[in-house]
Design a binder for these strands. Sequence first.
RNA 1: GUCCCCAUCGUCUAGUGGCCUAGGACGUCGGCCUCUCACGCCGGUAACACGGGUUCGACUCCCGUUGGGGACGCCA
Length: 471
Amino acid sequence: MTLRTRFAPSPTGFLHIGGARTALFCHLHTRRHQGTFVLRVEDTDTERSTQEAVAVILEGLHWLGLSPDEGPFFQSHHTQRYLEVVQELLQAGHAYVCTCSKERLDALRERQRENGDKPRYDGLCRELHLPADPQRPHVIRFKTPREGETLWEDRIQGAIRISNGELDDLILVRSDGSPTYNLAVAVDDHDMGITLVIRGEDHISNTPRQIHVFKAMGWEIPDYAHMPLLHGSDGAKLSKRHGAVSVLQYREEGFLPSALNNYLARLGWSHGEQEIFTRAELEQLFDISALGRSAAIFDQAKLLWINGHHIRAATPEQLLPELAYQLTRLGVEPPPSPETLATILPEFQSRAATMVEMAQKCRFLFIDSVQPYEEKAARKHLTTAMRDPLAALAATLETLPEWTIAALESAFQSTLETFHLSMGQLAQPLRVALTGCGASPGILETLWMLGQDKSLNRIQAALDHLAARQP
RNA sequence: GUCCCCAUCGUCUAGUGGCCUAGGACGUCGGCCUCUCACGCCGGUAACACGGGUUCGACUCCCGUUGGGGACGCCA
């Protein structure tokens, strides 16, 4: 049987890093086994589901390169089908009408909690055979077997068994006539021919409920693989309201999708001592059978390291759009030409852990003035003693026939000799003049990237700055 | 509270009874390289939660304790 998996987000908010990891694992495992990856939007909660959330989730998946082979399908389009299944269940005696009020249910749960019991429906309407009277508010519940236990061989967790006595009669159809999650999931997983359900560990408790629906309908039960959750630095599950941010936020912060995928894959999974993986390698190597069973904590520091690695490994062309984007966010408008960016980009690849950082570090090339200087750097390096050497260097640079690294180097060297200066003694003041701060790529490369006009202007500006400080 | 799951350096992990005086990576600390900042390179720091078994021998198997997490909705 060929593998069919699905990723099933609910559109009640953005796609966060934990959801992205689930989607990634599912996608990777499916690729590895030449299966089909289906995307299904679980929007049975019409109150909380929004179109905006759907769009944002799709965008997040697309950015990570996790686009589905089939879908997106929407559960809200399958309502009729779910209700048909419920009719079958009702007729076969696997479901029943329940008229218990929410108030009664709340009171019941409170009492059970006080007694130290597990809160659950007591089955008051279970044997009443109430009619589905449209005039009287009611829900439809599944008649969960009271005896026995439900067990499955989880592909990640191993054997899991839960006695049916732990379960209550879940609601299949709400009083407004809409189907609920557990019904919809079971029906769709069957209808879509899903053979392997890969999802978060937080769904373990739903699995026996869904298996019961499968059994009642006489359907073949899929395999299940419940992956360990992602935790925040406090050790608690990452969720929308707890520490997790949208994956698109990572794009804004200058992370590469290849890096995020690489990092996420290493959370719970490993392949020997390899840390860096390309997407192609992951699709070749990743398998849920190699997953660990314990939750992992999200570590931004390691993500940064991996992102830096992917930035260094990328070609300038690959990074170009991202750099242009980040530069405009920093107010460099319009962004420099692709040719210009491709020329300077290699100088910054080993100097940035994120594309935001890269934009910040090369921004000086594209602005009109780098003043005011970073105070500490200016105070330390831009001293009056440097006036003559800088002026002399400027004079030499002005007459340079060609603006090449080699030409710049000889001009620089001759100035050093004339004034008996060491490399650093001249490079640092010049660096402050050119960039406004004390750190940049090599000084010759910096001059070269900046170009003759801007370099001369900035040296002159620095000399003016020094003159202004003179009494 | 009840049920389910988990447990190796701060973090991610390797380890499937002897190869482990526990390996790698991030971080951190020190050093090298060096015109600055990075990159790179070298080195240090740091862990098998605890208690019982099983065994000639346990990080590895079993039980318990403790700790952590998850689930207990007319949410998904």
